[in-house]
Design a protein around this nucleic acid. Sequence first.
DNA 1: CTATAGTTTCAGTAATTACTGAAACTTCAC
DNA 2: GTGAAGTTTCAGTAATTACTGAAACTATAG
Lengths: 191, 191
Amino acid sequence: MNLSPLSQDFVLHFGEMGSRWGINRTVGQIYALLFVSAKPLNAEEIADALQFSRSNVSMGLKELESWHLVRLQHLPNDRREYFSAPEDVWAIFRTLADERRKREIDPTLSMLRDALLATPANDEDKFAQKRMTEMHNLIEMATSWFNDVQRLEPETLKQLMKMGTKVTKLLEMKDKIKVVAGGKTSIGVSR
Amino acid sequence: MNLSPLSQDFVLHFGEMGSRWGINRTVGQIYALLFVSAKPLNAEEIADALQFSRSNVSMGLKELESWHLVRLQHLPNDRREYFSAPEDVWAIFRTLADERRKREIDPTLSMLRDALLATPANDEDKFAQKRMTEMHNLIEMATSWFNDVQRLEPETLKQLMKMGTKVTKLLEMKDKIKVVAGGKTSIGVSR
DNA sequence: CTATAGTTTCAGTAATTACTGAAACTTCAC
DNA sequence: GTGAAGTTTCAGTAATTACTGAAACTATAG
């Protein structure tokens, strides 16, 4: 691998973590390489830098494309495809969250919905359904909330996160604040 | 498998999803079984219900214990160990999030911190470090926020989630609200 | 202490997943 | 069209991970 020690560590680490994140080592390393690379790279360069076979790189890139985690572009007077990781880390975060939700949550939600429609055959089924309902409701709420929050402007989100749990202070206040419908917001102490 | 079709579907689904969640099929199924089961089960019963070898169950339970996802208990006049999934789905959610953070995020954060301490050898390293900084900051902020939010009372959290993006309305207001230090909250329009 | 019920470990094997290199396919300049 | 450059597919193989059954270990009742 013809990379600086700094990048190399980063790339290798992502390879290792890949397995914990449900992507394979190759894919993790390719992504890491693109992430720290200042310029887009073509498949040949990637294969060379990481010492993978050309076809392995091709499959890895395909995988990354399916995750919407790389951008494909062409350089003038060059037929080869160049790949890069999106610059905006927030966008990456969002993409990752979306994709994981699609793969890891949605199928479960839909299975749960089906299960909850079924008529319980006995007491055990009734209990099982109760548990499934709890699980369904929690997942439903958490994901839809996450979904909402996720699409806030990065700046707003940042502000929100920086507040941390202080946001609950606002919640406590909520009851005392009256928001007048119709665009204009008036603040006053109720009661 | 001697389970009702309802539970069986649930258990099999968790087995399948297991692989996407970084746990294996066996472990996923064991967990699902415990989750929908009204009473704690011993290893024998689990092996029997899921048609796994006794030792496979033993290893699966060990794995689940390491994730803090099952409770071990003893029944009176019975030497066998009985296992159950915690009843509170919020607690499960929290545990899961904690464990995943430990395994999937923390190592990366620490690697990034190390990398950021290194002296860049050239321009490429400088660029790489810039990218790593962005990633580090984002992960740091997101996880510590998540951490905070996660430990709120379930009720508060629920309330927060139900509000969805409306929370930003409160944010907009924030500037106009003055919180007086010292316990008592006074509300007034600033400027 | 011994017998027995219960649990864990581990070496061997099965199943799955990742990777390679050769061949097929695609695209484009000429 | 032809050929060269680039990309993808895929069958075979390597590497990894999951699973089993037998043996070792542990705890307890008597």
